[in-house]
């Protein structure tokens, strides 16, 4: 099928932005969206622990992609890395705006409102602790865990997206888990 042959290089993560510009028809955009949206959504949800904000930000990532391509400043080589880098920036902006809201309680309790998460996490207290603990990590540490455990990427995929070598990612995820362990006070 023509659409498949067109999208194949995009799925491989390598793309030509001028070519993609010509492909902004609904079928092509839907193909890109369907391929990457679930992972982007999970990445954002993992970091924010909020499904509603994850939905907004994940769709915004794709709108930014289209706008960037139209402005001739879209991803040159690695679409997936571009998407997650943009998602990370948007999440950081969102976190900053949260902290700016004086007196507003952080939405650590939101995972408790999510019936899907209820099925997967043992207790509300654990969820709150994990979500709150995650925010105390550095941005890179949060990202590596979000890519591995949120989006479900392999070590190699995470390495490509973060533009770090595999050993650096291994060390980063070790530090991230160790830091999370410390913040949870479960060090043994």
């Amino acid at each position: 099928m023509i659409a498949q042959s067109i999208l194949k290089p995009i799925f491989l993560g390598v793309m030509d932005k001028s070519a993609l510009m010509n492909r902004l028809d609904p079928q092509a955009v839907a193909g890109i969206f369907d391929r990457y949206y679930p992972q982007v959504f999970r990445f954002v949800r993992y970091r924010l622990a909020d499904e509603y904000q994850a939905e907004d930000i994940a769709s915004e990532v794709f709108v930014r992609l289209l706008e960037a391509i139209q402005a001739q400043r879209g991803p040159e080589r690695n679409l997936r890395a571009w998407l997650f880098s943009t998602a990370s920036h948007l999440v950081n902006d969102q976190m900053r705006s949260r902290y700016r809201r004086q007196g507003e309680q952080l939405r650590d309790s939101h995972p408790a409102d999510d019936p899907h998460l209820d099925e997967h996490v043992q207790s509300r207290q654990e969820r709150r602790a994990l979500a709150a603990g995650l925010r105390k990590l550095t941005g890179e540490q949060q990202n590596v865990l979000a890519l591995r455990f949120g989006a479900g990427f392999s070590l190699e995929e995470t390495s490509a997206i973060m533009k770090k070598n595999v050993n650096s990612v291994k060390q980063l995820q070790f530090r991230a888990l160790a830091a999370l362990q410390r913040t949870l006070g479960v060090e043994r």
Partner: peptide, 22 residues
């Protein structure tokens, strides 16, 4: 925590928004 499914409605709403933007 990360493996929780993506809500179908969220995907549908986002899809429309992105296609409309395109």
């Amino acid at each position: 925590r990360g493996n929780a499914p993506v809500p179908e409605n969220a995907g549908t709403r986002s899809r429309v928004r992105v296609l409309a933007a395109a």
